[in-house]
């Protein structure tokens, strides 16, 4: 007994142990200490700067001196929403973001569903790698690669000629609104690149949501007489809505804010991101840039409210 007691270090000694005991008794203080650094980061660096940016949007700029007038006013917002050019930019970005989101959802869902439900564990691993690897590659490299693919001398054009379908391509490029001199300088090309870029952000949340739907629910649905289409509509789709909502928030917000893709690929029309970049950089109109950045935030908030009403988060 004495030997056993001697073998172990004595309890209750040492200053470190004293501190641990003190913190153990005051668990709230302990929690506060642990959370202090992340809370400081979130509160000041993250939300604080965002708040500072938003504050800029209620200031205005003096036309003559190009100085920021630090007086609360709605003049900047009035400028944003009354100038047709600005409204066009908002509308153009919104239409692009919505179409990219819808297209990404339609492409991503079957892939995610196949990955989760039908692929063998090896094939599933291959799928995950295939989805993730493009995300690890440089963003600019991918955009420039697409510019080459879509260019007049690019592989897509060559392909259409090779199969003798250049007429189809011509017809597409002449369609007003989506067309242009070549795919690389059309809204269609920009759309293709956006969908390519954000697809993983749609696939992964949907796959995660589908992973959480037990196979027995799908069997139960079939067992109760539901044909595969009915099972999809009444069981699989509603239960994967949270994933679909999460994925669409990614694709939607990434498209709303991006300024690199529209400036490298696509038609000359401006997008919100480019406008923010230009106003705060070249033009030095920080208030207008800030007002433009408020637009995506408001749009996403509206979108979230909309999907919440659809019941996307009920199954969470």
């Amino acid at each position: 007994m004495a030997a056993a007691a001697g073998a172990l270090p004595r309890l209750g000694g040492g200053p470190l142990r004293g501190i641990s005991t003190f913190l153990y008794r005051r668990s709230t203080l302990y929690l506060l200490l642990l959370l202090m650094p992340p809370l400081l980061w979130l509160g000041t660096v993250y939300l604080g700067t965002l708040f500072a940016l938003l504050t800029q949007s209620i200031y205005s700029i003096d036309e003559f001196t190009a100085q920021i007038v630090r007086k609360p006013t709605f003049a900047t917002y009035r400028q944003l929403f009354t100038q047709p050019a600005n409204l066009d930019i908002v509308l153009r970005t919104l239409v692009m973001a919505v179409s990219v989101t819808i297209a990404a959802a339609f492409i991503a869902f079957p892939i995610a569903n196949y990955m989760v439900r039908y692929a063998s564990s090896r094939a599933k691993a291959v799928f995950y790698v295939a989805v993730l690897v493009p995300m690890w590659t440089s963003y600019l490299v991918k955009v420039y690669a697409w510019r080459l693919i879509l260019a007049k001398e690019g592989i897509l054009n060559w392909f259409f000629h090779a199969v003798g379908a250049e007429g189809v391509l011509e017809a597409i490029l002449q369609t007003p609104g989506i067309g242009g001199p070549s795919l690389a300088s059309s809204y269609l090309g920009m759309f293709i690149v956006f969908v390519y870029m954000w697809l993983p952000y749609m696939i992964l949340p949907i796959a995660a949501a589908l992973e959480r739907v037990p196979g027995s629910l799908i069997q139960a649905s079939a067992d109760l007489g539901a044909r595969p289409g009915q099972t999809f509509r009444s069981v699989i789709l509603p239960l994967s809505l949270p994933g679909l909502a999460a994925g669409s928030v990614f694709t939607f917000s990434l498209t709303l804010g991006d300024y690199i893709i529209p400036s490298i690929v696509g038609a000359p029309g401006y997008f919100i991101g480019m406008m923010v970049y230009q106003q705060q950089g070249t033009a030095g109109n920080i208030p207008l840039a800030a007002a433009f950045s408020v637009v995506p935030i408001v749009l996403i908030a509206l979108y979230l409210a909309f999907v919440k009403r659809l019941g996307a988060f009920d199954a969470m």
Binding site: P214, S216, Q219, A220, S221, D223, L224, V235, A315
Partner: peptide, 20 residues
């Protein structure tokens, strides 16, 4: 014959109730 056309029903071990 696929399950949805058999006049047979199943009570599953994990119940498999639709959570939503």
């Amino acid at each position: 014959v696929p399950p949805y056309e058999r006049n047979v029903n199943t009570v599953f071990q994990d119940y498999a109730l639709f959570p939503h």
